[in-house]
Design a protein around this nucleic acid. Structure first.
Lengths: 153, 153
DNA sequence: GCTAGGTTGGTGACACGTCAACAAGCACCC
DNA sequence: GGGTGCTTGTTGACGTGTCACCAACCTAGC
């Protein structure tokens, strides 16, 4: 490290703002989700990904990579969700190692009940507070950062 | 819940982009921090807050509220950091219940060594990828959301 | 003073995440 | 077809976060 290039005033403000929003928004949305639906963020993400899949089932590895989770974490979490009846595991035809994660009836009901509340929460605490220009800027900026991060690693 | 107002295309793109950036950026910055300095995000935040305090010490409750952490979490984390010699606890003159969290010499060295690398990481993976207009938009937008969230709760 | 009610920090039990290791299965190549 | 090496999903141990509870302490009102 030669001469560290510190952030200037504006950059520092933006960075700290981002960090703080991130933390507060997380807390609030987690709270709302738990109060409205009894689900955790993690539960919601798993259910939502499964519900968007073709016949409501996905390979564990596939689910893990799209969620940016480790297989281990997902496996642990799925056993807990399985005990609550939200998902199930099926054997995978064609690959005897694999297991298919299936959305159960109860899981489908859970995500369908939760989604409207969740969208409302996201709107109230973030989206509806932004102008169209800010939405566009956020879209552009986040996607640029995302492609940088997925290219590098 | 009457008629749920789903997100339109642009809003959904921005929201998903935000979520994905958030996750990827976290992973990357955590990785960098661990590789460069052997610190976790949590460690860094604690040390950075302490180093900015007047005589390098803060009440536990004060630190917890500025970090948006529970006192319990902070207390647990501090005992671990204390075992590594990064912080220490002092008795609090004037309030026998309280304890002052103090930055040790080693803790100061740790944060001073870590900071340049950390700033570099933040620049490379986010700040330097944004235009000045985007920085300004991010600043405005995050601070609006933050004040909404702090006002409500 | 002293009592009632709030605050402070800590603790133990439990939920969750990470990491390393593993058995089982696939795929390829000779 | 039988190594060789990679992939898949699971497990156990351990580090970390959450929650409920607690003792010690402050503060105000009487």
């Amino acid at each position: 490290m030669t001469e560290p290039r510190w952030l200037d005033e504006k950059q520092a403000r933006a960075w700290r703002g981002y960090r703080r929003m991130r933390a507060l928004l997380d807390l609030q949305i987690t709270r709302d989700l738990a109060a409205d639906s009894g689900l955790s963020d993690a539960d919601y993400d798993v259910l939502s990904n499964l519900s968007e899949a073709s016949p409501h089932r996905l390979r564990l590895t596939e689910l893990a990579t799209t969620m940016l989770w480790s297989k281990s974490r997902l496996s642990h979490h799925l056993t807990r969700m399985q005990q609550r009846g939200l998902v199930d595991r099926e054997e995978c035809a064609g690959d005897a190692r694999g297991s298919l994660i299936v959305l159960t009836e109860a899981g489908l009901r859970a995500i369908e009940d939760a989604a409207p509340h969740h969208v409302d929460s996201v709107r109230r605490h973030m989206i509806d507070l932004l102008t169209d220009e800010e939405i566009a800027a956020l879209d552009a900026l986040t996607h640029r950062v995302v492609s940088h991060l997925t290219a590098t690693s």
